[in-house]
Design a protein around this nucleic acid. Structure first.
Lengths: 108, 108
DNA sequence: CTATTATTTCAATAATACTTGAAACGTTGA
DNA sequence: TCAACGTTTCAAGTATTATTGAAATAATAG
C-alpha cells in the first residue's frame, strides 16, 4: 500500500458516518450487510449511505457483491490491515510506544 | 481515545503534506525539528507548514515546545499508538487479518 | 411486460479545507 | 531600545467534500 492509497483510506475513515458504517460492518463479519440495512443502522438516508459506501469501496476498505436485489457490503480486513501496517511500519518505524498498542485492548 | 478524537487524528493524517511532516518527524525522533526545518523538508512555505503543524497538534499527534527562537515539534508516539489501537481493537475487533499486520514489516 | 423493491446517480446547495502572501507576534543579540 | 529572525495569524480566493431530494438504473416476482 503506497502513500496515496493510505491517504485515501485515512480520508475515507475520517468521517463520522463512514467510521460508523465500518464499525457496523465489522460486527457483521463475513455475512456483510445490504446498503439499506447499513443506512438504517447508522441513521442515514439511502442516498447518503450509498455515497459513503462508494467512498469506502473506492478506498478499498469495503467490498460490494450483488445478491439478487441487494448489494452486500463487507469490510475488507486485508485492506484495513495494510493501512494499519503502513502506519505502524512505514510511518512510525515500529516505535515501541506505537506497537505497544497492538493486540492489547486494555491500553487502546 | 473516543470516536471524535480518532476522526480528528485520521483527518489530520489524510493529507499529503501532513503525512509527510509526520514521517519526517518520526525520523527525527525525540530531537524533533523546528517549523522552518520541517517546511524545507516537505517543500512547503512556512505559513503552510505552520498551518499543517497546528492541525497535527490540535489532533494531538505532535507536540510543540519553544526553544529560544525556535519551536520544536515532535511526534506524539503515544497518540499515534492510541489511534492505531482504536482501529485495531474498537474498530476491527482484533480481527486476525488486521492484527496479522502488526509488528511484521514485510507484510505491511 | 408491468409493478415493486433496492440501490445508485445527479444537480443544487451548504459547509469545510487548502493555498498564498502579507501583516503581526514573540524572542534574542547588539 | 532597536533590528533581525523564526513563527504564527489573518483574509481572500480556490477547491474539495457533505447533504438533500428527485430521477434513473437493476433485478425480481407476478
Amino acid at each position: 500500500m503506497d502513500e496515496s492509497q493510505v491517504i485515501d483510506a485515512l480520508g475515507a475513515l475520517a468521517q463520522e458516518t463512514r467510521l460508523r458504517i465500518l464499525r457496523f460492518l465489522v460486527t457483521k463479519g463475513s455475512d456483510g450487510a445490504s446498503a439499506g440495512e447499513i443506512g438504517e443502522a447508522v441513521d442515514a438516508a439511502s442516498s447518503r449511505a450509498s455515497f459513503h459506501l462508494s467512498t469506502l469501496a473506492n478506498a478499498g476498505l469495503v467490498t460490494a457483491e450483488r445478491k439478487s436485489r441487494h448489494i452486500i457490503y463487507r469490510v475488507n480486513f486485508d485492506a484495513m490491515g495494510s493501512m494499519i501496517g503502513y502506519l505502524i511500519n512505514d510511518c512510525c518505524g515500529n516505535h515501541q510506544d506505537v506497537i505497544a498498542c497492538c493486540p492489547t485492548p486494555d491500553k487502546c
